[in-house]
């Protein structure tokens, strides 16, 4: 449902107009607009791949946001049915993220990938966060207040930026196109030339009723500042949207200490 919002967010950040993007992937802009607003069904795997190629983000990420099984996986499962049994084994052991990471390390050592799939280079969110930039159980009157709070946290690490100006920039970006990606999550972000990437995370004590793509109230805000345009930035945004689609909000809303948030994130991100 909220795939469209993510596509729109990434497209706007990539600086592509609706028409440009539609032309590049060979669909009508009316169709793309309907997809972005969630009126039309999510695009097929082929179209998603085309979109991902235009945005220069790993296609698998967008598939995950759509909660769709990657065609690589489904094809492989058809070819080698035995692999399905292995998945079952993993499921029976209820392996956690870190344990799966260990399994993958073993795979990497035993069966190194030829040619190197670049999907591994998804930047993580956790390293951009510190306990100081995690605000828990915020309760406030409106979206503006949330932006002010995250701007306060982010500005502390950005030399030459004060909270008010940063909040203004975040607000501008959000007005351009909404930063709510669904799954109770919004990802306000801003591009500041040359700034080191940094993020702040806010959990809300009460759902904030703003306009979200899936109509669910906002409970989690991940704000990011990035100093470079291009691949890494977009990939990171897509990654956060994927985390949102996988229920990041439910996992974090219980956290009572910044440390817990970071621990949950590291667990979730162990296998990207």
């Amino acid at each position: 449902m909220h795939l469209g919002a993510t596509l729109r967010l990434l497209r706007v950040d990539a600086g592509l107009s609706l028409r440009d993007m539609a032309r590049r992937i060979g669909v009508s802009s009316a169709y793309l607009s309907r997809v972005e607003h969630g009126v039309d069904a999510p695009p097929t795997a082929e179209r998603l791949t085309a979109i991902a190629r235009e945005l220069d983000v790993p296609p698998a990420l967008l598939m995950d946001v759509a909660n769709r099984m990657s065609p690589y996986v489904s094809e492989y499962l058809e070819d080698v049915p035995g692999a399905g049994t292995l998945f079952l084994e993993l499921a029976r052991r209820r392996l956690s993220g870190t344990q799966l990471a260990r399994v993958r390390d073993f795979l990497d050592a035993e069966f190194p990938v030829r040619g190197g799939l670049s999907d591994a280079a998804v930047p993580a969110l956790a390293p951009l966060l510190t306990p100081e930039r995690v605000v828990l159980q915020l309760s406030c009157g409106g979206w503006e207040d949330v932006l002010d709070v995250v701007a306060g946290r982010l500005a502390a690490t950005l030399p030459g930026w004060d909270a008010a100006r940063l909040a203004e920039r975040l607000r501008q970006r959000d007005e351009e196109s909404s930063c709510a990606v669904g799954g109770e999550v919004a990802v306000p972000h801003v591009f500041l030339q040359g700034a080191a990437p940094v993020a702040a995370l806010v959990t809300l004590a009460k759902g904030l009723h703003v306009d979200t793509p899936d109509g669910r109230p906002l409970r989690l805000v991940v704000a990011a500042v990035d100093g470079e345009r291009g691949r890494v930035r977009l990939t990171r945004m897509a990654h956060v949207a994927r985390l949102a689609a996988r229920g990041l909000s439910e996992r974090l809303i219980e956290a009572r200490q910044p440390g817990q948030v970071l621990a949950v994130l590291e667990e979730l991100e162990a296998l990207r």
């Binding site: 828990l136 915020l138 309760s139 406030c140 207040d145 004590a205």
Partner: peptide
Amino acid sequence: VRPLSFVSTE
């Protein structure tokens, strides 16, 4: 008055 509240260590 606009209320605002969150958990803070500092």
